[in-house]
Structure formats: C-alpha cells, structure tokens
C-alpha cells in the first residue's frame, strides 16, 4: 500500500507534466482525477486548477463554469466520499 502511495504521489505530477510537454491535454486532465480517485484531494484540486489555468475558459456550453476541471474534480471527490461511506 505504501509503495502504491508513492507511485501515485510521483506518478500523478509526472503524468501532468508529460501531458503539458508531450503535448496532449487529456493526460493533464486525467492526472487530477487519478489523485482524486486515490483520496489525495488537495493535490487533485491544485492540479485541476492548474489545468484549468492552462486550458482557459471553455468555449460554448460550459463557458459559465469558468473552471470546469476543478468543478469536475470536486464532484468526483464528493462522489468518492459518498461511495466509500455507503460501502463501509
């Protein structure tokens, strides 16, 4: 479990950086969701926020969300918490 934790702690930021320099935005988008899935909500929120800064405000339907990736990560953190409580 401890080894897994280090894989996530190092792997998620590396994935985000690779996504930026590759460049392929879905990798940057996936990284905060992986962090959120494993319970690292603070890094998840910060990475999602950074991704939204880089991506800019969305065009079209989701324009009013301004920071859609952060909102989606917040929802996924809440969903994870609710599911864990439900299954416990």
């Amino acid at each position: 479990m401890r080894a897994n934790a280090w894989v996530i702690r190092i792997g998620v930021p590396v994935l985000f950086i690779i996504g930026f320099f590759l460049p392929w935005w879905p990798l940057m988008f996936v990284a905060p969701f992986i962090a959120a899935f494993y319970g690292y909500w603070l890094p998840a929120l910060l990475l999602a926020w950074c991704a939204d800064l880089i991506f800019g405000t969305p065009v079209g339907l989701f324009h009013s969300l301004v920071f859609p990736c952060t909102v989606a990560v917040v929802l996924s953190i809440v969903a994870r918490s609710v599911i864990i409580r439900h299954l416990r």
Binding site: L42, L45, L53, I54, G56, V66, F67, T70, V71, V74
Partner: peptide, 24 residues
Amino acid sequence: VFLLVCLVLLGAGIFWHRAIESAA
C-alpha cells in the same frame, strides 16, 4: 479544510481568473 480549499480555488477562479491566468 476541503470546503475552504474549494471555496478559495473556485472564488479565485471566478473573480481573479484573468489576472491569475495572465500571471501563470
């Protein structure tokens, strides 16, 4: 703490997103 971080990030995003993006 989670709620506070969410509010700070989203508040900063909504009110100062242009300035923050510019700095970034």
